[in-house]
Design a protein around this nucleic acid. Structure first.
Lengths: 335, 335
DNA sequence: CTGAAAGCGCTAACAT
DNA sequence: ATGTTAGCGCTTTCAG
């Protein structure tokens, strides 16, 4: 691999001149610049980013930390983040914590050793304390789509108004006449989604008994299992709000499997708007998270942090919106 | 950030001793080792991987290059690859080419500058020439789940026997009595899947007219669109083989949308076995790709390449297997 | 406009 | 068992 010194020697100048020529700064005569460029071509020279990183203390690498890349929603977010990162000439280190705090911490240590320029932490992939500790040390961090049960005070974050997401889901179902409501929620992480939903239900005079609020684990299987239980309840719920689309798909599977209809017998609302939701039958009504917006907002904040603008906590909250598809309908009269 | 020199000074020894103590090699007395370890704790010292990389010419970073992380199948593969990489203390750089050769090439240049230790290239995310050029330069590369239209002779790769995958799909449908077959395939990349399918059809005396073989683009929308066209054909196909599950989901949407039943009127077979396929209604019959196996095999080959074992082309081909679910059934008598 | 020299934080021979 | 000394390939003052 050719080094800057190699081409300096070949051209008959010093490293400094080559560096200046390539960086486009300093004063280099057009003549020598051309000779240098030509030589760079011929020797196939590529600057060594590692050396550059060491010299500059900057790696142009960002870490994308998320709970589980195989869970839909995250790959869609990852694509959006990667896209904007690329536009800013940053590379992304993929850190999949598998919902394991210990693994997440291990990743974090490595990332620090690697001198990544910043962290994008999604979901609940890392304990807040560990993150705060890194911020303390001066590492730029932005939380993206953060879990709702811990308040990231003082930590820059971009997120969705999850409480409002729950509100939208509830308003929609109640407007359709549903009063036997059920919820599947991955608590405590997604508590706000549930709170928003519950608040509107209460306003409408609807009680959500504990049995009708099931614990989910953000997997499709957990949505399925929770729903199987919900279906044994009497009176049977006429509508189910699952706090992620992925769980909602499991819920739908469970309902259809026992021979009930969606939305004929049971309406289902999800949250996220993952790609597949629009293409299943019946297509899933859901509260959409604007993923591109989240990603670009997160990147902007992170980059300004890196640039040294210490907007202590320049956070952004993006409103979600309801997308009505075929999985919800007015409550049936016979229901 | 504390350096190795800082703790050397603090403890009252030299860098070498500290390095030896931390690396566990060389001879360091237990006493000083303890003092060093203590000091490391206190100062919160973390070795600088960048400096280490520069000194060793090794970055412990691998690049995962894929066409589109948001397309299901890739995140599932990515998780498997990331998992095995982590086990071997490698970090993964996520490179999403968006099916854009120019972008892919740009990524490649950066990766070279970054001195990544190796490349895992999935799907058809990079021109074979560019890859070959890097191998020429000595960069370890392994193709994983490579496209089928170009033969990666001499390049290490792990893949699935895609021809056999097509065979399994055809055999299954034909055994169910289907003779009006249709295919949706992302050619030329996935040509083998189609060839395997076509060969079995031909053996059974079934002709696949050009109209019944539609071009897909690995998106759910393209599966949908292609199917809409297929449904206008006369005679109408009684079975559709989509060469990826993702396209199969689009096909299913199209069939159900016009009021036909799956599998009552039309059977559908996919390929990949992405997670969601087992949970939709009807659950998708598909030819499964063993993703964990692919990932671990790819990593093994890559690591042995990195270790210098130049098994010119130690490639692996893994057999796929059929998973019969609810989207296929015997051809209806009235059909 | 170009050159010399120091330094980023670590590894790795080679000495002592 | 510990110290000395060169690099790795680049950036970055400071001189000429």
């Amino acid at each position: 691999m050719a080094t800057i010194y190699d081409i300096a020697k070949a051209v008959g100048v010093t490293q400094t001149t080559v560096a200046n020529a390539l960086a486009g700064k300093g004063n280099v005569s057009e003549a020598t610049r051309q000779r240098i460029l030509k030589c760079v071509q011929e020797l196939g020279y590529r600057p060594n980013e590692i050396a550059r990183s060491l010299a500059q203390g900057k790696t142009f690498t960002l870490a994308l930390i998320l709970p589980r890349i195989s869970t839909p929603f995250y790959p869609e977010m990852a694509e959006a983040v990667e896209h904007t990162a690329m536009q800013h000439d940053y590379q992304l280190l993929l850190c999949n914590t598998h919902d394991d705090a210990a693994l997440g911490r291990r990743y974090l240590e490595r990332l620090i050793s690697r001198w990544v320029d910043g962290l994008i932490v999604m979901g609940a992939s890392l304990p807040l304390d560990d993150i705060a500790a890194q911020i303390e040390r001066g590492l730029p961090v932005v939380l993206c789509d953060w879990q709702e049960n811990e308040s990231p005070d003082g930590i820059p974050h971009v997120s969705v108004d999850f409480r409002q997401a729950g509100v939208l889901a509830a308003q929609h179902l109640i407007a359709l006449g549903h009063r036997q409501l059920a919820v599947i929620v991955d608590e405590p992480m997604q508590i706000l989604r549930y709170e928003g939903f519950g608040a509107i239900a209460q306003e409408a005079g609807i009680i959500l008994p504990p049995d009708y609020v099931r614990q989910g684990y953000s997997t499709i299987e957990s949505g399925y299992t929770a729903t199987k239980t919900l279906l044994t309840l009497s009176p049977r719920p006429t509508a189910i709000f699952a706090t992620t689309d992925w769980m909602a798909l499991g819920a739908m599977q469970a309902v259809l499997e026992v021979g009930l209809r969606v939305p004929g017998d049971i309406s289902i609302v999800g949250l996220d708007d993952i790609m597949v939701s629009a293409h299943i039958s019946p297509a899933l009504t859901t509260v959409a998270i604007p993923k591109e917006q989240l990603a670009t907002a997160a990147m902007e904040i992170l980059l300004s942090q890196i640039a040294g603008q210490n907007d202590a906590s320049a956070s952004v909250v993006i409103p979600p919106h309801l997308i009505v598809r075929q999985s919800t309908a007015p409550v049936s009269i016979t229901g």
